[in-house]
């Protein structure tokens, strides 16, 4: 059954069809919510909330985009709401100075302990996944919003209260930082022009990113 058929059936209340939609999208939605939250359990709760909102929002879903695209955006919005609430609470507890996204959230749990996590990744996906986890929180989040949730620069700017120029430069820096991590990680090769160039880049990136 195509995604569109599943959506049509789900709209009419077919729970089995919806279950299939959840099954097809749960990994990516969870990868998104868990990374945004920086916590596995919270990530699972947020993913559940996103799917529930999808179920409830289905009558309004016109099919202008694919269901996948729609659910990723829903999930991103659920996460953004969550982070706002958390930031508000954090700000209340710690005083008003911590309003910058770079410091307002704690570092995430360590995914790498999970054996399942190690097994189920394609090599490239796994390397990127590891790299993402090694990024500072603010860079990971902005990259997840762009690459996993598919939000535009403008939408990311609204979500994180940043102007578009800042979004653009932060995404670029996050990508450079991710690349640097992967280059340093011996398991992954970009097939750079030469090892020498590679070493040189590392040195230059150091301290700037």
């Amino acid at each position: 059954m195509t995604e569109q058929e599943l959506v049509e059936k789900s709209k009419q209340g077919d729970q089995e069809a919806f279950e299939q939609l959840v099954r097809d999208n749960q990994n990516r939605v969870y990868a998104l919510t868990a990374r945004m939250a920086g916590d596995r359990e919270e990530g699972a709760d947020l993913a559940q909330e996103a799917f529930l909102r999808a179920w409830q929002g289905l009558p309004a879903f016109q099919g202008g985009s694919s269901f996948s695209t729609w659910i990723y955006r829903l999930a991103a919005n659920v996460c953004i709401d969550y982070l706002r609430r958390r930031r508000r609470r954090w700000a209340v507890e710690s005083g008003p100075s911590l309003d910058d996204s770079e410091e307002a959230w704690p570092e995430p749990a360590d995914w790498k302990q999970d054996p399942q996590y190690r097994l189920e990744q394609a090599e490239l996906g796994r390397a990127v996944s590891r790299g993402l986890d090694a990024l500072p929180e603010y860079q990971r989040r902005i990259l997840v919003l762009r690459e996993l949730a598919g939000l535009s620069y403008q939408e990311i700017g609204q979500a994180l209260d940043l102007d578009i120029g800042t979004v653009k430069s932060r995404i670029a820096r996050a990508r450079l930082a991710l690349r640097k991590i992967l280059l340093e990680d011996g398991n992954f090769s970009f097939a750079p022009p030469s090892k020498k160039t590679n070493e040189k880049k590392k040195g230059e990136h150091h301290g700037r990113l």
């Binding site: 939605v29 969870y30 189920e120 490239l124």
Partner: peptide, 16 residues
């Protein structure tokens, strides 16, 4: 590509 970690097994039954 699939970017981990994969959804925990209890997610789907929880949603449903």
């Amino acid at each position: 590509e699939p970017i981990g970690p994969p959804a925990p097994p209890e997610l789907l039954p929880g949603v449903m």
